[in-house]
Write a protein that binds this DNA or RNA. Structure first.
Length: 577
RNA sequence: GCCGAUGUAGCUCAGAUGGUAGAGCAAACGAUUCGUAAUCGUUAGGUCGGCGGUUCGAUUCCGCCCAUCGGCUCCA
C-alpha cells in the first residue's frame, strides 16, 4: 500500500512532468509533499493564471492514465551533475552541489521525466488516485528574499477520492466560518482600510464579547492573587535601548515620534513598563512572587503582505502577565500557570490541548546552568499537572529563555497556539532587577512572561471560527430576543415586562416589536445566531407564558418567566451551551 | 516588502471594444396586523478604491499609490 507521503510526493513529480510538457523550458525548484498535498516551484517564461491550472491538471491526469512506472536510479554525483547540466536544471544543480560527494545520488524517473530526488515514491503514476491543483503563488527560491521568485503550484492529494472530497468539504466549512466573513455578517468588528491596515475596530457586539472575556479574565486573575497593571502606550527610546528591542526587534517597531526633543516609541511589548514598576521600589524576597497582569495594547509593524483579518494585525491587546519570583518559587508558579491556562481555555470551549516545550537555541543568552534549571522546572511543572505527552522542540526556545506553548484544536480540528509561558534571562539582567534575599544580599529576580490568549484580537478571531458565530450563551452579545406576533395591548405589555424582567436579572436581550411577520423575525434571530427567541402573542399574554425557541431548533417550549430565568441562570453560570 | 489576483450602492454581486452605471438584500416612507427561516409597493442611495496621465470625453486605457485576497518571507 502506497503511503500518503509517497503519493503526494509522486503527485508533485507528475505536476513537474506536466508543466515540463507544456513549458519545456521550465526550470524546476523543489517539489515536496506537504500537509494535505504537495507543491512544486518553477521558473517559467510566463506568469501562470488560474486557468492554467486546469490545463496542467488535465495533463497530469493523462500522465496518471499512462500509468508510467516510477523508477529509481542511483548515480555518482559527477554523473548526476552531467545529467542536470544537460537538462539545464540550474536550481537542481545548486541542490546537488550541496550534497556530500560520497553519497549515491538518486533520481526518480517516469517516462520522459527525471528528477533529482531522494524519494520515496509510489510504483506507478496510476497509484495517484485523488488530487487537485489548488493555487498558484510566488515563492522565493529556497525561501530567501534575495533569491529569484519562482512560481509555486500547490495541490492536494489523498489516498482516495472520498478522502479528497472530505478535505474539500473541510475547506468549505472553514470558509463558512471565516471570522472575516462572520465579523461582517454579525457586525462584530471591522478593519477600516482607509484608516490604516491591520488596526481593529470592535463594533458594539464584538466589544460586548470582549468585555465579557476581559471581565472573566480579570476575575480569574484576582482569584489567583494576580494584580492588574495599566501602563502607557508609548515610552522613550532609552527604555527600548535598555531592553534591547531597538537592536533586535527594531524591524517590528513603528517609527518613533518626537516629543520635546525626545524619541518616543509605541510599545511592541509591555515588559519594560512592568519592569519599571518593579524597579520603582526596593523589593524583598518576602514580596515575591509578584504576579502582574495587564491587558496591554501593543503595536508591531507587520509587513503589509502578512496581515490577515484579526489573526495578524498591527495593533493588538495582549493578555500579558509577568511573574516575578525567586528561583525556588519558579516550579509552582509555572505549574499554577499551566492549570490556569487549562481552566481558562476549557471554559472558553477548547478541550483539546497540546503542550510544547521549547529548549535552548543556539546563540542563547544566560549561562547553561540557568537554562537547565529552567527547563527542568518546566518539565516538572508539566509532570505535576500530569502532562506527559508534550512535544519537545529542541532548540526552539527564544534566545532569552525556554518556554511552554499550549496549542488548542478548534471545532474543525485546526491547531492554534494560544498560551505561552516563557522564562526571561535577558531583561532582568538588562534592567538589573533584584530583590533582597534572606541573607540581606541582592539577588537577580526571575521573570516569566505569560499569556493565556496571546492576543485578544486573534483569540476573538479563533473564537468566532470555533463557534462559527454561534457563541455560547454566556458569551453571546445578544442572548435572547423577544419577538411579538402582533401589537395588541396584551402582547405589548407582556413583551415589555418580560424584557424588563430579564434585563434586570442580568441578561442581554432586545425586543423586536416591529410590524413584521413572525417568520421574518424568527429568520433574523436565527441568522444572527441569537441563542433564544422568545415569542409572545395574545395566547402567551393570556396564559402569562413565553414560547421559547432555541437557536437551531424548530420546536418551541412554553415556559413561564420564572422557568426562562432559571434556564438562563443555569447557562450563564455554567458557561456552557 | 516580493509574486499573482481583486477593489462598482451599507452588504452580495452584474455591467459597458472609452460617451459619467444596474439587480437582490438592507435603508426611508406607505400599505398590510400577520403564529415560528424572507408580506407588498414606492422612494432614495454611487466622484465605479485614491492621485496623476492619454483623450473632445476615463469607472473603462496607461502610470503611481492605498487596501483586500492567496501565497512567499517574518514571528528575535
Amino acid at each position: 500500500m502506497a503511503n500518503l507521503e509517497s503519493i503526494r510526493h509522486s503527485a508533485s513529480h507528475v505536476l513537474a512532468q506536466a508543466v515540463l510538457r507544456i513549458y519545456p523550458n521550465a526550470k524546476l525548484g523543489i517539489g515536496p509533499a506537504i500537509e494535505n498535498g504537495f507543491y512544486y516551484d518553477f521558473e517559467l517564461p510566463v506568469s501562470l493564471i488560474p486557468e492554467d491550472l486546469i490545463k496542467i491538471e488535465s495533463e497530469m491526469k493523462s500522465i496518471i492514465k499512462e500509468n508510467l512506472p516510477i523508477v529509481k536510479e542511483t548515480l555518482s554525483k559527477q554523473d548526476a551533475m552531467k545529467r542536470l547540466q544537460a537538462s539545464g536544471q540550474t536550481f537542481k544543480q545548486e541542490l546537488l552541489s550541496e550534497l556530500p560527494d560520497t553519497e549515491d545520488i538518486t533520481f526518480f524517473s517516469q517516462g520522459d521525466f527525471s528528477d533529482l530526488c531522494k524519494g520515496p515514491h509510489v510504483a506507478h503514476t496510476r497509484d495517484i488516485k485523488a488530487f487537485k491543483l489548488q493555487k498558484i503563488s510566488g515563492a522565493y527560491w529556497r525561501g530567501k528574499e534575495t533569491n529569484p521568485m519562482l512560481q509555486r503550484i500547490y495541490g492536494i492529494a489523498f489516498e482516495t477520492k472520498e478522502a479528497l472530497t472530505a478535505y474539500l468539504t473541510l475547506l468549505e466549512e472553514a470558509e463558512k466560518r471565516d471570522h472575516r466573513k462572520l465579523g461582517k455578517e454579525l457586525d462584530l468588528f471591522s478593519l477600516q482600510d482607509k484608516a490604516g491596515a491591520g488596526l481593529v475596530y470592535w463594533h458594539p457586539k464584538g466589544a460586548r464579547i470582549r468585555h465579557i472575556i476581559e471581565t472573566f479574565w480579570k476575575e480569574e486573575h484576582f482569584k489567583r492573587d494576580y494584580e492588574l497593571l495599566n501602563t502607557p502606550h508609548i515610552g522613550q527610546s532609552w527604555l527600548w535601548e535598555t531592553s534591547g528591542h531597538l537592536g533586535f526587534y527594531n524591524e517590528n517597531m513603528f517609527a518613533p515620534m518626537k516629543i520635546d526633543e525626545q524619541d518616543y516609541y509605541a510599545k511592541p511589548m509591555n515588559c519594560p513598563f512592568h519592569i519599571l514598576i518593579y524597579n520603582s521600589s526596593l523589593r524583598s524576597y518576602r514580596d515575591l512572587p509578584l504576579r502582574w497582569a495587564e491587558l496591554g495594547t501593543v503595536y508591531r509593524y507587520e509587513r503589509s503582505g502578512v496581515l490577515h483579518g484579526l489573526m495578524r494585525v498591527r495593533g493588538f491587546t495582549q493578555d500579558d502577565s509577568h511573574i516575578i519570583c525567586t528561583p525556588d518559587q519558579v516550579e509552582t508558579e509555572i505549574f499554577e500557570v499551566i492549570k490556569f491556562a487549562k481552566y481558562i481555555l476549557q471554559t472558553m470551549g477548547f478541550n483539546d490541548m497540546k503542550y510544547y516545550l521549547s529548549t535552548r537555541p543556539k546563540g542563547a543568552v544566560g549561562d547553561i546552568s540557568r537554562w537547565e534549571q529552567a527547563e527542568k522546572a518546566l518539565r516538572n511543572a508539566l509532570a505535576m499537572e500530569n502532562i506527559h505527552d508534550f512535544e519537545v522542540d529542541e532548540g526552539g526556545g527564544a534566545f532569552y529563555g525556554p518556554k511552554i506553548d499550549i496549542k488548542i484544536k478548534d471545532a474543525i480540528g485546526r491547531e492554534w497556539q494560544l498560551s505561552t509561558i516563557q522564562f526571561d534571562f535577558n531583561l532582568p539582567d538588562r534592567f538589573d532587577m533584584t530583590y533582597i534575599g534572606q541573607d540581606g544580599q541582592k539577588h537577580r529576580t526571575i521573570m516569566i512572561h505569560r499569556a493565556l490568549f496571546g492576543s485578544l484580537e486573534r483569540f476573538f478571531g479563533i473564537l468566532i471560527e470555533h463557534y462559527a458565530g454561534k457563541f455560547p450563551f454566556w458569551l453571546s452579545p445578544e442572548q435572547f430576543r423577544i419577538l411579538t406576533i402582533n401589537d395588541s395591548d396584551a402582547t405589548t405589555a407582556h413583551a415589555k415586562s418580560t424584557l424588563d424582567h430579564l434585563k434586570r436579572s442580568g441578561f442581554r436581550g432586545t425586543l423586536d416589536d416591529r410590524n413584521e411577520k413572525l417568520g421574518l423575525k424568527i429568520r433574523e434571530a436565527q441568522v444572527q445566531h441569537i441563542p433564544f427567541a422568545l415569542v409572545i402573542g395574545d395566547k402567551e399574554a393570556q396564559a402569562n407564558q413565553i414560547a421559547l425557541r432555541k437557536r437551531g431548533e424548530q420546536t418551541t417550549q412554553l415556559l413561564d418567566l420564572n422557568e426562562v430565568t432559571q434556564l438562563f441562570q443555569g447557562l450563564q453560570t455554567q458557561k456552557v451551551n
